[in-house]
Design a protein around this nucleic acid. Structure first.
Length: 400
DNA sequence: ATGTAC
């Protein structure tokens, strides 16, 4: 059984405890917040040098550190950013004549297959590469990854702030590609190089860590552009520049030398952010205007309500695979991995409208537009090669 | 969320 959520009190904020950092919860009495995640916020608050922890309404427990939190400290802690340094969400306008989900779902390219600069030198997606490949890291370039990562074709549904949406180039009924992906093995390697020596301790050489971190942030952004370009070409469209591209796993050095760690929290100081719902619900473009109390941050998505294990157990009892591949909003899910299909079921996530409502109530963001999924790509479908396991493809043992 | 170990 999953842990029952505790009902959090709204602001005013908790009284600071001497010797520890302050913790501010940007939730409301009706928010679903697991007590384990709140406990993690207080554990982080007790770290040396920690100043202030801001918990977003999508807060949920992570490995050691909470997800959906922005943490300001005098000391740089790599584990608070986690392994997927540079993970973020980007939005690319796309023009398609007849967006029929069934036809488009079948045309998505295999985004588990990396783009090799030599073997795939002719791939038109390389047009988005204008400089060097950050850190020279070629492995897994152009792949979406697993977990909560996805590439989604979505339609702009409602526009709440028309002028703002127009400045972003977004109008109702427009199509967009939403790309949620990170730095794959590169960020993982950077964290491991730190933790293998220093564990969860601070970075003894912040400049060294930050140089590698910044490469991963650039790599993640490039990867999102490559993913969007691969899909655009496959769907017969022209690649575009992102109108939004915000990273939600990173550390920022503020002007006062404070390290602002964001883990599943997007920069909220005057930025436009897409806050992802699920593959079966809306996502929201918001104008973020979060101040110091929120560590200049906003939520990054709906936030998990169930652990992956719970989602798998409960999902198998509740849903069929067919139900999960066609969502209540009529969109299709491309996902050849049954387990991932259950783990990422919309019911495993909090209600996105509650998350957005909490941000609005606390004055952190203003909705600009909502999008509704058309096709959500997770991992290549297995339909065309029923006798062969996906792993054989990735290991390059022949092709169909 | 990840590449790798079990």
């Amino acid at each position: 059984m999953s842990a029952q959520p505790s009902r959090q009190q709204p602001l005013p904020r908790p009284t600071p405890v001497p010797g520890t950092a302050t913790v501010a919860m940007f939730t409301s009495p009706t928010s679903w917040v697991e007590s384990d995640a709140v406990a993690q916020c207080h554990q982080v608050a007790a770290l040396d040098g920690m100043l202030h922890v801001a918990a977003m309404p999508d807060l949920h427990p992570g490995k050691g550190a909470p997800i959906g939190a922005a943490m300001a400290s005098r000391v740089l802690y790599p584990f608070l950013v986690g392994s997927d340094i540079g993970c973020g969400i980007a939005v690319f306008p796309i023009s398609l004549k007849r967006p029929v989900p069934e036809r488009l779902a079948a045309r998505f390219p295999d985004l588990d297959r990396a783009l090799d600069p030599d073997r795939d030198a002719d791939d038109p997606a390389w047009s988005v590469l204008t400089g060097d490949i950050p850190a020279g890291h070629v492995e897994s370039l152009g792949t979406v990854g697993r977990g909560n990562h996805f590439v989604e074709l979505a339609r702009v549904e409602t526009v709440a702030a028309p002028d703002h949406a127009r400045r972003l180039g977004l109008t109702a009924s427009d199509l967009v590609l939403i790309v949620h992906s990170g730095s794959r093995g590169l960020g993982e390697r950077i964290l491991r190089e730190h933790t293998s020596v220093h564990g969860a301790g601070p970075a003894p050489d912040p400049a060294g860590y930050l140089a590698a971190h910044d490469d991963a942030v650039r790599w993640g952004s490039l990867n999102r552009r490559l993913l969007a370009a691969r899909v655009a070409h496959a769907l017969g469209a022209v690649p575009t520049e992102p109108v939004i591209d915000q990273c939600h796993n990173l550390v920022e050095v503020r002007d006062d030398g404070i390290y602002l760690h964001r883990k599943g929290a997007a920069p909220g100081d005057g930025r436009d952010v897409l806050i992802a719902g699920t593959r079966g619900t809306r996502s929201y473009v918001v104008a973020a205007h979060a101040g110091p109390e929120a560590n200049h941050s906003v939520a990054h998505g709906a936030g998990r309500k169930m652990s992956r294990a719970d989602a798998l157990r409960r999902g198998r009892a509740k849903h069929t695979v067919e139900e999960l591949r066609r969502t209540p909003v009529g969109s299709l899910v491309v996902c050849g991995d049954r387990q991932l299909l259950f783990e990422e079921a919309p019911t495993a996530y909090k209600r996105i409208e509650q998350v957005i409502g909490d941000l609005v109530e606390h004055g952190l963001a203003t909705p600009v537009a909502s999008t509704v999924p058309v096709v959500t790509y997770k991992t290549a479908d297995v339909g065309s090669t029923p006798t062969r396991d996906r792993r054989d493809h990735r290991r390059g043992r022949g092709r169909p």
